[in-house]
Nucleic acid binder design. Structure first.
Length: 889
RNA sequence: GCGCGUAUAGCUCAGCGGUAGAGCACUUCGUUGACAUCGAAGGGGUCCCAAGUUCGAUCCUUGGUACGCGCACCA
């Protein structure tokens, strides 16, 4: 046993303790137990630890440490995501800051080289931060979505899906990000409401007025796209326009003739009921254009600047003009021509790139797609049958909702950082999809009848989420048939935030069901969002972002972890407040000091196993009983992912039960009792502390390890201690100690209320004590004396005059306080007690007086109510007697 | 428009068909040998509103109010 210093220095201890664990190999799968695996949601290589990571990784760490101690062979798989757009953006920005040439100038290969360099230098930051949090990840198995093995997995999957027809190339409208000049998926588009305008333009009828009508007025929020209009559509039932269907209008500015067509799409209630159709720049219009065979005119280049081509007929003055500038020009020209029929302010939904923040442009391009609809079927079934469970369960609805309406997944990105699409093209554009270039050549040679041809690889890379979707099996070594894959797949739990269900969880489900024919994980635990202490969403612009590392600096990782766990309830976001972290820092200190108390009394941690059955003292039986209950409660809660309940149980037990009561009640035993009682109590003090350390360790690994190591006297190393605690109950002992606690509390309360000086030692007189009360006073005499500041305990059948009287457990106790008693205060106190008893009695009697309650309520409820009536009337009687005596003085 | 969620103490949140809880904050008292990062005692709630189901509703049902989130649409 080594003396614990007065305080726990987390800044010194935590890094040291972490190193010790890592060096001891504790984070690697150990033993031959039932495998338990969690794959970490791979942080971005650009990432740094934010509160969401802190929460998620704390919870995963708790699960892993808990399962390890249960003897499971635990793998917590670490890895990092290459984060295509995000990383390319970071590196490009850095290059710009250093005034280095743009990536296009240095070329693809050199740029990718630079990104790898950058990754090597600054990509590991989050690892150190996770270590500071205490995350027990297996660093030796670190993977990267672009390492060799995972890249091979990506190619295998792509080729397989291509051959199965689940990946295909298609020309359709995509969400185009003009800043990054790449396509992005629907999920990467954020629709935001912005203040915009709606303009009404008149398109003159080409062949003169029809029934006196000479123009058709369309409404648009995007005037610049009118340059590419291919038609004007009206609803077939819209009587205003029936006569115009089939006529042509002269499109202003470009001076093209376009038809007026009838289609179900226009809503007669909206706008003018006539809709301009720009097939190449609007998703709805694209569908209409396809139905009516209307030409799709591309208006913009990759940077969303207007282009003038022989095809689109756009006047040359627009060539190279930014789309928003072009908008102004169009409006001005329309107005000049006298065709502007109105402007209206309007809130419009505008699509923005989630990374770039610029307005997304629908563009007609060739892209690669995954047939998500086909893939979704088995993934939906896996959740519906309960093979994979969402916790909390209601997230499965979100999952179904999305999966059942899933659209093709655009997986190609016009970026340089990422997995290059494994497709090579022949001179005639013929595509050869293969895992290697050599294989592509083989296919090509075969295709071209033995003729060797030049092949060029597709220049696009894959969506980052494509490789993440393989994470649960690619990190275990797939496509190789590894031992890890056999042992740890399917993984046990996936823990993540709800906003990533579509991006990641759903796609992992689809890929896993297709390639493993088995679920990727048994449980998807969806944790809450961390908000600031006012419940506000954290954001850089609000300036309310909490840096978890600051809390770790100030308080240590343990309190932060405990705070996050204690707040991790189901179905509600959590608010992270500094005060709460402080509160749990105090909790850590409390535990520390309890351990110091044991040291002071020379109680080390040993492995002298105390069989609770052999305990003699009710006090020790009681703490063993409580410790057992606590341990089972924590297990139950963790099994159900109720981190908050687990944290509450261990907190409550450690502070309230062990420190407040058990240590205090044990002191008189240690001081005054015989050697056997002292020995037994020391053993119980020790084994209960050990239970606390074992149970708390998943939540507060650092302080628990430090205390255990310092106090260990010949016991097993901490990590060999098992989670299991004897299932022990001692109802009689529990009853007695609870009664003692109740009595002591009531004496203390009465003393305070009647203003008895704290230092005054009183006599306690049990009046006509019940057998139980007699036994209690005898067995717990030292404790009652010490904790309630009692001089002597007596039994009598007559209350003395001039005393406070309390009723506890059916017995009246008198505390003679002649000279110090505050008569009015005691009267007031008794009145309060009487009032409470009366209230309870009335309530219970009321129920029993209700005929229907007695006949319909379950018998045990009725019986309970009867017992309450008895108890409260007795108590009331005793209190009334006490009051009468007092008044008689 | 579709879907999900929340409303309980001053604050942040648990909870339960039968007696309403925790942490923090607040009040009073306290340098008794683990702990002032502490201890003891205490104050504080129409469990959002209304109706219904029930012997009994804070809890279940319906409707309302307020707030939040996701998806879709808006020429």
């Amino acid at each position: 046993m080594r003396d614990l210093p007065k305080t726990f220095d987390h800044n010194e201890a935590e890094p040291r303790l972490y190193r010790e664990q890592e060096e001891a190999g504790l984070f690697k799968p150990q033993g031959e137990g039932d495998p338990y695996a969690i794959v970490i949601p791979p942080p971005n290589v650009t990432g740094s630890l934010h509160v969401g990571h802190a929460l998620n990784n704390t919870l995963q760490d708790i699960l892993c440490r808990y399962r390890r101690r249960q003897g499971r062979k635990v793998l917590w798989q670490f890895g990092v995501d290459h984060a295509g757009i995000a990383t390319q953006m970071v590196v490009e920005r850095q290059m710009a800051e250093r005034q280095e040439p743009h990536r296009r100038e240095i070329g693809r290969e050199a740029f990718v080289e630079k990104v790898w360099e950058w990754k090597g230098e600054s990509g590991g930051m989050i690892k150190d931060q996770l270590k500071r949090l205490g995350a027990s990840l297996d660093w030796s198995r670190e993977r990267f979505t672009m390492d060799e093995g995972l890249s091979a997995a990506v190619r295998r999957v792509f080729v397989q899906m291509y051959r199965d027809g689940l990946i295909y190339r298609d020309k359709r409208l995509v969400n185009w990000d003009p800043k990054f000049q790449t396509a992005i998926s629907d999920l990467e588009v954020e629709n935001q409401e912005v203040n915009g305008k709606m303009w009404n333009f008149a398109y003159p009828l080409a062949d003169g007025p029809v029934d006196g009508i000479s123009e058709i007025v369309i409404a648009t929020t995007r005037p610049e796209t009118m340059l590419g209009d291919g038609a004007v559509a009206v609803h077939p039932d819209d009587e205003r326009y029936t006569n115009l269907i089939g006529k042509k209008v002269r499109l202003p500015i470009v001076d093209r003739l376009i038809p007026i067509i009838a289609d179900e799409y226009p809503d007669p209630e909206l706008g003018t009921g006539a809709v301009k159709i720009t097939g190449a720049h609007d998703f709805n219009d694209f569908e209409v254009a396809k139905r009516h065979n209307i030409p799709l005119l591309m208006l913009m280049d990759a940077e969303a600047r207007m282009i003038s081509t022989p095809d689109n007929n756009v006047p040359e003055r627009y060539d190279g003009v930014d789309r928003f500038e072009a908008r102004k020009m169009v409006i001005a020209e329309i107005e000049e021509q006298g065709l502007l029929r109105g402007i209206e302010d309007k809130l419009i939904m505008q699509p923005f790139g989630d990374r770039s923040g610029v307005v997304i442009e629908p563009m007609l391009t060739d892209q690669w797609y995954v047939d998500a609809k086909t893939m979704a079927g088995p993934a939906i079934d896996a959740v519906r049958t309960g093979e994979t469970k969402f916790v909390p369960e209601n997230w499965s609805k979100t999952y179904y909702n999305w999966m059942e309406n899933i659209e093709p997944w655009c997986i190609s990105r016009q970026l340089w950082w990422g997995h290059r699409i494994p497709v090579w093209y022949g001179p005639d554009g013929e595509a050869f999809c293969a895992e290697t270039e050599a294989e592509a050549h083989r296919l090509a040679t075969e295709h071209y009848d033995g003729e060797a041809v030049e092949l060029t690889q597709d220049t696009d890379v894959l969506d980052t989420w494509f490789s993440s979707a393989l994470w649960p099996f690619s990190t275990l070594g797939w496509p190789e048939d590894t031992d890890e894959l056999k042992a740890f797949y399917p993984t046990s739990v996936l823990s993540t935030a709800f906003d990533i269900i579509f991006f990641w969880v759903a796609r992992m489900m689809m890929m896993a069901m297709h390639f493993q024919k088995e679920i990727p994980f048994e449980t998807v635990y969806i944790h809450a969002l961390v908000r600031d202490e006012n419940g506000q969403k954290m954001s850089k612009s609000k300036g309310n972002v909490v840096d978890p590392l600051e809390y770790i600096d100030e308080f240590g990782a343990d309190p932060l972890r405990f705070t996050l766990a204690s707040q991790a309830t189901q179905g509600r976001d959590l608010s992270l407040s500094k005060q709460r972290v402080e509160g749990y820092r105090n909790f850590r200190t409390k535990l520390w000091n309890a351990a110091r108390f044991l040291q002071l009394r020379e109680v080390p941690l040993t492995d002298e196993v105390v069989d609770p059955q052999t305990l003699e003292l009710p006090l020790n039986q009681w703490i063993a009983h409580e410790a057992s209950a606590m341990s089972f409660e924590v297990s139950r809660a963790l099994d159900a992912f109720r981190f908050d309940e687990a944290a509450a149980a261990i907190y409550q037990f450690t502070w309230r039960t062990y420190c407040d009561w058990y240590l205090e009640l044990a002191k008189p035993v240690l001081d005054d009792c015989d050697a056997a009682a002292v020995t037994e109590t020391k053993a119980a003090l020790s084994s209960t502390l050990r239970t606390i350390l074992i149970t708390l360790e998943p939540f507060m690994p650092f302080v628990c390890r430090e205390v255990y190591a310092a106090m260990n006297d010949g016991a097993l190393p901490f990590d060999q201690q098992s989670w299991a605690v004897a299932d022990f109950t001692a109802p009689d002992a529990a009853k007695q100690i609870e009664a003692a606690i109740a009595l002591i509390s009531e004496i203390r309360s009465a003393r305070t209320e009647v203003n008895v000086p704290v230092t005054a030692k009183l006599e306690l007189i049990a009046i006509n004590a019940t057998d139980g009360a007699r036994a209690l006073c005898e067995a717990q005499e030292p404790a009652i004396k010490r904790l309630a500041r009692i001089e002597t305990i007596k039994q009598t059948d007559q209350a003395p005059t001039g005393s406070i009287q309390i009723v506890s457990g059916g017995t009246t106790y008198a505390l003679p306080v002649v000279g110090v008693i505050d008569l009015d205060a005691e009267l007031a106190r008794l009145d309060k007690e009487i009032g409470t008893a009366q209230g309870q009695l009335k309530k219970a009697q009321g129920k029993l007086g209700n005929e229907r309650f007695v006949s319909k309520a379950p018998p045990e409820v009725v019986a309970e109510e009867r017992a309450r009536v008895e108890r409260f009337s007795e108590e009331l009687e005793q209190l009334t007697v006490a009051k009468a005596r007092l008044e008689a003085l």
